[in-house]
């Protein structure tokens, strides 16, 4: 027993060492620096002034709200678009699924910068969308499709949709297709089968996809910066600015921890939701029997 434990410790040591050295220690350092006094790259002391500056300022709270709003919208849109795709992929025979999966993953192989520039070209003043709309006579002069919330949302959804599709697919693949036949045999039409059998069993996949897309969206900084410009401010681009342009490292450290708390909080919430949903189902059934 002691031998196997030693073996386990030895096997775990290298990755653990890597994580502690290059992730945990820097994170702790960052956490410490979020309590520094001052506004330069090098500071010292201990105070809550950085957090106070962020959390008591209407502008920064507005950016936080915008960030959460865009994160939620992007996750919801991804569910709506990604669920049917993920479901149909999961129900395809393995050979066909592999080929279509490549189409889903392909955009992820491109550098984010290339993707964003592609969108800039497509949505720009003399871009593809404007040329098409003007060619069709829908509009007379070029419209402005960039630098607004919708454009940011569009590009975020495009980038993170594969995560949703893959999550839903792996979730649905675990639902035995014979359950759909069993439901049909028990007089459930397709909609009832979906609502009462498929959807409840897909919840874990949907929830993990939702969490992933939300976290990726709220921490995005290239997309809001380039597509949203100065009109759409998200916390990620704000941190980026503070680190590289303003060089206010203590403040950016504090903002990073607000963001981290937000994402960790959502992950924890998703996990409890999952746990509650199953126990609630049980509780409801017991209650209905007593009634």
């Amino acid at each position: 027993m002691a031998g196997s434990r030693t073996k386990l410790a030895l096997l775990l040591a290298p990755p653990l060492l890597l994580l502690v050295t290059f992730m945990l220690l820097p994170l702790l350092g960052l956490f410490r620096s979020s309590f520094f006094v001052g506004s330069g790259p090098i500071a010292s002391g201990f105070s809550f002034e950085q957090y106070a500056k962020f959390l008591l300022d209407e502008y920064y709270l507005g950016v936080l709200a915008e960030t959460i709003g865009i994160g939620l919208s992007s996750a919801v849109l991804s569910v709506l678009i990604g669920y049917p795709v993920g479901y149909s992929l999961a129900r395809l025979p393995a050979e066909k699924r592999r080929r279509r999966l490549i189409l889903v993953i392909l955009p992820m192989t491109l550098s984010l910068v290339v993707v964003v520039f592609g969108w800039l070209v497509a949505l720009g003043r003399n871009g593809l969308l404007n040329s098409i709309l003007m060619g069709l006579g829908v509009i007379d002069s070029p419209g402005r499709f960039l630098f607004n919330r919708a454009a940011v949302l569009l590009v975020l959804v495009q980038q993170y949709l594969p995560f949703m599709i893959l999550s839903v697919m792996s979730g649905v693949a675990q639902i035995d297709p014979v359950l759909e036949q069993a439901a049909a045999n028990l007089r459930a039409d397709r909609f009832t089968t979906f609502r009462r059998v498929i959807l409840p069993l897909s919840i874990p996949g949907i929830l993990s996809g939702f969490t992933l897309v939300f976290i990726l969206s709220v921490s995005a900084f290239i997309t809001p910066k380039l597509i949203g410009g100065s009109r759409v401010q998200m916390i990620g681009s704000l941190i980026y600015e503070q680190v590289l342009t303003v060089l206010n490292w203590p403040f950016s450290a504090a903002m990073s921890f607000v963001l981290l708390t937000l994402t960790l909080g959502l992950t924890a919430l998703a996990n409890t939701l999952l746990a509650v949903r199953f126990t609630a189902d049980q509780g409801k059934k017991h209650a209905s029997r007593r009634a």
Partner: peptide
């Protein structure tokens, strides 16, 4: 469609929800 037929089936894998 299956849901309009008056049959009751027990599947090989039982297919319980």
């Amino acid at each position: 469609p299956p849901y309009k037929r008056d049959t009751g089936m027990v599947f090989q894998s039982y297919a319980l929800f």
